[in-house]
Amino acid sequence: MAQLDALRTGVSGARAAEIDQGLRAHMNKVYGTMSVGMLITFAAAWALSGLAVTSDPTGATAQISADRYLTDLGYALYASPLKWVVMFAPLAFVFGFSAMINKMSAATAQLVFYAFAAVMGISISSIFLVFTGTSIAQTFLVTSIAFAGLSLWGYTTKKDLSAMGTFLIMGVIGLIVAMVVNLFIQSGPLGMAISALGVLIFAGLTAYDTQQIKTEYIAHAVHGDQEWLGKSAIMGALRLYLDFINMFMFLLQFMGNRE
């Protein structure tokens, strides 16, 4: 890509090789941190859903299927006004994290990212109440394959994807607005349209973000900005993590079998 070639202009062969080696280590850290975050999210979601549902009607607060009942914890999380806090907590968390990361050390930023992953797990734990475990696993596998292919393409392509960034971000804003509206009108066709557009938008963001992470690393490595490099892998992991989670959640609307 011409943009990356321009960044390397004037860099010696030895220095360029050092940057390339650092880039590989950087991307490994990005994907590794993201993977740990995903593990925390789904472990938290699965564990919490197990505490929220019981097959024993004694002391249960609400029935959700023929042989499943909400515990007091489940009712608080999914049926009381607290559900709105649970639903929007990750959004508030990620905005706060992005605003404060420049004041954090790399180690603190990593811990905060893992805390965010746990909060996201709490927020999406209801999927284990709504969809079968098999369909969740199948959707996760399909999302993983799609994500890997899109991220690999974003990393290796010579095409500059920066032009699509603004369009995709505008699409995300439009999605959020449409999702909030649909919380109140509960339109099935609008919900399916949102899911379809969500899959496409976050598929594009996966490739775009991967290329941006690569480009930004090279730009800062050329200038030796070590302080930035220490925290950039965490922010890169956050970006790809959000792409994966959103693509998974939107795909689940199509592929998930409901309980």
Rank of each mutant, 00 (worst) to 15 (best):
141 L>R: 08
245 I>N: 02
106 A>M: 01
143 T>E: 00
243 D>V: 09
50 G>K: 02
49 S>Y: 08
238 L>F: 09
112 V>M: 06
214 K>T: 01
115 A>W: 05
111 L>N: 14
212 Q>D: 14
220 H>P: 04
195 S>I: 05
8 R>N: 15
87 M>N: 10
191 G>L: 07
74 G>V: 09
242 L>V: 11
249 M>N: 09
201 I>Q: 03
233 A>I: 10
27 M>H: 01
75 Y>V: 13
58 T>I: 15
203 A>I: 00
172 V>E: 06
53 V>A: 03
220 H>I: 13
233 A>P: 15
246 N>P: 01
51 L>N: 15
15 R>N: 14
104 M>N: 01
59 G>H: 01
146 A>T: 12
120 M>T: 13
225 D>P: 05
5 D>V: 12
32 G>F: 02
66 A>L: 10
79 A>W: 13
216 E>K: 14
226 Q>I: 14
147 F>G: 02
239 R>P: 09
169 I>R: 13
46 W>Q: 11
93 F>S: 08
163 A>L: 04
47 A>I: 10
208 Y>C: 15
117 A>C: 03
83 K>V: 09
100 M>V: 11
175 L>V: 06
113 F>K: 03
23 L>H: 03
173 I>S: 11
33 T>V: 07
27 M>S: 05
200 L>F: 00
124 I>L: 01
63 Q>I: 08
246 N>A: 03
128 F>W: 09
142 V>R: 11
151 S>K: 01
250 F>T: 09
222 V>H: 02
149 G>S: 03
215 T>Q: 14
104 M>E: 07
184 F>V: 05
